[in-house]
Simulated scan of single mutants.
Amino acid sequence: MFDIGFWELVLISVVGLVVLGPERLPTAIRSVSRFISSAKSMANNVKDELSHELKVQELQENLRKAEKMGMEDLSPELKSSVEELKQAAQEVTRPYAKDKVQTTASDAKEPSPVVEDVVKPVETESPDKKVQ
């Protein structure tokens, strides 16, 4: 990438040793290596996100082509893209459908006894009565 050879690295390390000294050089090397590793990981994350977005865009384009063709006589590539999109849509809506079914089912049930105990007023002795 930078085309740095062995002798260039030796020269850089000697200059670093002279400038920073033997006490601060290991700390400087560690901080530079951390910076380089974080830059590499950030570049990999950006690359992964871009590839994901390109795949999504390609799937959307294939879906538009399929809609224009009237969903008939599609090529195998378009059929597989349409199926992937349908599966992705089902996976996204499934959790919400389950939550909706559970809430409607729980609404139809009667309140649990625990809730009724909390709602009932607590019977206490009146201050007029004296304990004997």
Rank of each mutant, 00 (worst) to 15 (best):
E123P: 03
T124M: 10
Q60I: 14
G16S: 15
A66E: 02
L11R: 10
V122T: 12
V92S: 05
K100W: 04
G16C: 13
L54V: 12
I4A: 06
D117V: 09
V14E: 05
G70F: 01
Q57C: 06
E58A: 15
K86F: 12
R24A: 15
V119S: 02
P76L: 10
E123Y: 02
I4F: 10
M71K: 09
E72W: 03
K86L: 14
V114M: 12
Q57A: 15
R94V: 04
S31I: 08
Q102I: 01
G21T: 02
V122C: 04
T103C: 03
A89Q: 14
D3M: 09
A28D: 01
T93P: 00
E77A: 08
E77C: 01
Q90K: 07
M1Y: 11
G70Q: 03
R94C: 03
E61I: 07
G21M: 03
N62F: 10
L50P: 02
K79Y: 01
S75D: 09
E61S: 11
V118N: 08
D107G: 04
N44I: 12
S126I: 03
V92R: 13
V114L: 15
E83Q: 14
G16Q: 10
E83M: 12
L50M: 12
E110H: 14
D99E: 10
G16Y: 05
E125P: 02
P121M: 07
S81C: 02
S106F: 00
K86P: 00
F35I: 11
V118T: 09
E125A: 09
G16F: 09
S51V: 05
A43T: 11
L63W: 07
M69W: 00
T124A: 09
E84L: 11
G5I: 00
T124Y: 00
E58D: 13
P26C: 01
Q102P: 00
K68Q: 14
L63F: 13
E77N: 03
H52A: 14
P95M: 01
K86A: 13
G70E: 01
P121E: 13
A39W: 02
K100R: 10
F35G: 15
A88Y: 05
L54H: 12
S31G: 02
L50T: 13
N62Y: 11
